[in-house]
Design a protein around this nucleic acid. Sequence first.
RNA 1: GUUGCGGUGGCAGAGCGGCCAAUUGCACCAGACUGUAAAUCUGGCGCCCGAACGGGCUACGCAGGUUCGAAUCCUGCCCGCAACA
Length: 325
Amino acid sequence: MKKLLVICGPTATGKTRLALDLAKTFGGELLSADSRQVYRKMDIGTGKDLPVNSKLQIPNYKLGRNIGYYEIKGIRLWGYDLVDPKDEFSVSKYLKSAQLILKDIWKRGKLPILVGGTGLYIKSVVDGIPTISVPTSPSLRLSLAKKNVEELFEILAQFDALKAASMNSSDKKNPRRLLRAIEVAQWRLSQKPGMLLKRKSDMNTLFVGLNAPFVVLEQKILLRIKKRITQGFGEEVTNLLSRGVNWNHQSMDSLGYRQWKEYIIGKKTIEKVIQEWFTDEKNYAKRQITWFKKNKRIIWFDVSKESWKKDIENTVRRWHNNNAE
RNA sequence: GUUGCGGUGGCAGAGCGGCCAAUUGCACCAGACUGUAAAUCUGGCGCCCGAACGGGCUACGCAGGUUCGAAUCCUGCCCGCAACA
């Protein structure tokens, strides 16, 4: 059975660094599960932490458009730079690339290590998302853009009463979710039944979760923000803007970038911007924790403890050596 | 010192006699999430009792007063800002 190691957890816990170490000892390659590191030229702000002058390597065999890897200390790192910051992106695109990459890593006899904080992306790879093949409908989205949530809910109820009834009170008021639900419902009506099959997982997956007491996490987050700024984050943003990326692009909705806007247009001081970046990133970490908490398969490790790295190594080794399944 | 404006819950900021424990935003707490997920969305948020309807207490700078009733009106005091001295 194919093995997949997952390293997840909130931001700033050192997931990538750990994954690199594990890759070295277990003969692995990394696949990033991060919804922001997919954008080219967004390196400092998304924490790609690449060595200077490193370049994306595109394999000479056919793998997929724009799919390549970086090499850090001899370890291949996939999943970065999948698209331009001006492009739209979503789990669906991510999963397509991820599946190609995984297949390739397995084929070459390596252990793929899925590492990142985007819970939905990890979920898509490990458990699948049944409706993921349902395409978006730009015209539908446009026509519904001005509707309020009550109206959207009504429309959904007309197309798919069951789905509408099954939505929870929060999603019923979430325009994005309602829109997608309508999109799926409409698509279903135009298809033969049974198109959406739940893919059975054929992987042997180990979930390693990294966490720390929240006060520790806060410190790490703040330090990292300051570090990124001294590393030239501001320049990175300016470069993006000069290349035609604008604030309305989905990519620029990322942490740090969107707060930085207020500084660039002179509306806020840098101190204020840092402060807001910090609180927003803390809130992001809380949301990640809420998400991952529900996944009972995750084995958690506290990175503020002494022996966490050894503990993980042992856990992984036991799983890695067990070929029974 | 005089005149004017202002002091409201952790912060910002509404309210300007009853419908005010007090709009809203942020922060904070909890949560949802099967194609934007670093996104989007929901609930809670003075204290105490209660599962809930609800009830009690303390609150709008401080102290008095007017009124059936005051965050809202009046008086004095304290503090901040602006202008004039």
